[in-house]
């Protein structure tokens, strides 16, 4: 049992230990395996294949397990490290301590968006990007996208999602207009709503975080820890609500075989959403 803290509460030493553990995973090659795994499981809902990670009810449990795997890898380097969370409704400007020199480093520069400060700046030599979306091997950020400004989601945006009493709804994909899952995952829906919450934060950071290899930016883990915390808050707010779909879909349902019901094992870990509903034996949020 360990604690995941708000990143704004971390001491200088805690930040340094986390950064050092991340850099060690990068050196060993394990970090890039996590980036590749995320990219590999990015299956969209126009694709007639199983999709465990995105545009799907199992968005929350898949990413919970993905974070647990990453956290365990960190702990093989330093047993005292856990993944902190970033509450982007509060620490919502480029001036937040999250982006300081002693933690994740700052914004990308004008032009090529290259991050120039902090431990993940290319010039430090510790953070070469190998995922191959761009020619360049540096981490990119474009906080707030000044060319067409994006704002971070607000507490009201999050509260609206948390107040939805239903976990997810048909068609169980990126165009589900109601349900907590897609309100937080945040796909824009024509004629209904714009890009929201989870997706919008990826966009606000921009650069590497906006693309297919988003875990190339270590802020990915802090963002997703907060998403994981929001799932826990939703469960507490709706104690009688269940993960949906709670049983395999009917034979004539177009999403059968493509989305993961409560007891359908998810790749690559062969773990059921039902096995990931409660994290309190492993960690808690403080």
């Amino acid at each position: 049992m360990y604690s995941r803290k708000n990143q704004s509460d971390l001491t200088r030493t805690e930040k340094k230990r986390l950064v050092d553990a991340i850099l060690q995973l990068k050196r060993s090659g394990r970090y890039d395996e996590f980036v590749s795994l995320h990219r590999q499981y990015y299956v969209t809902d126009a694709d007639r294949r199983p999709r465990a990670a995105h545009m799907t009810p199992s968005f929350f449990p898949w990413h919970r397990r993905y974070l647990l795997e990453f956290e365990k890898a960190l702990q093989t380097v330093d047993a005292g490290v856990t993944v902190p969370y970033w509450d982007w409704t509060r620490d919502n400007t480029p001036a937040a301590s999250l982006w300081a020199e002693d933690f994740l480093g700052g914004n990308g520069r004008a032009g090529d968006r290259q991050v120039m400060t902090g431990p993940f700046a290319y010039a430090r030599g510790d953070w070469p990007i190998r995922t191959g979306i761009t020619d360049d091997r540096f981490l990119r950020r474009d906080l707030g996208r000044p060319s067409a400004p994006v704002t971070l989601p607000t507490k009201a945006d999050v509260d609206r999602a948390l107040s939805d009493p239903v976990y997810d709804t048909a068609p169980w994909n990126s165009v589900s207009t109601t349900g907590f899952r897609n309100r937080i995952e945040g796909w824009g829906i024509r004629g209904s709503r714009g890009v929201a919450n989870h997706n919008r934060v990826h966009r606000w950071i921009g650069g590497s975080m906006a693309g297919a290899a988003s875990p190339d930016d270590p802020v990915f883990w802090l963002h997703h820890a907060y998403i994981d915390l929001l799932w826990t808050r939703w469960q507490k707010a709706h104690p009688r609500a269940r993960y949906l779909p709670d049983r395999s879909l009917a034979a004539d349902d177009p999403q059968r075989g493509r989305v993961f019901a409560l007891d359908d094992p998810m790749p690559p870990w062969d773990v059921k959403p039902s096995q990931l509903m409660d994290h309190t034996r492993l960690y808690r949020y403080v």
């Binding site: 590999q40 465990a52 395999s248 059968r256 075989g257 493509r258 094992p265 790749p267």
Partner: peptide, 12 residues
């Protein structure tokens, strides 16, 4: 580089 193979019970 491998393809996610496992899925829910019904074959897609």
């Amino acid at each position: 580089g491998t393809t996610p193979a496992a899925g829910p019970p019904a074959p897609a």
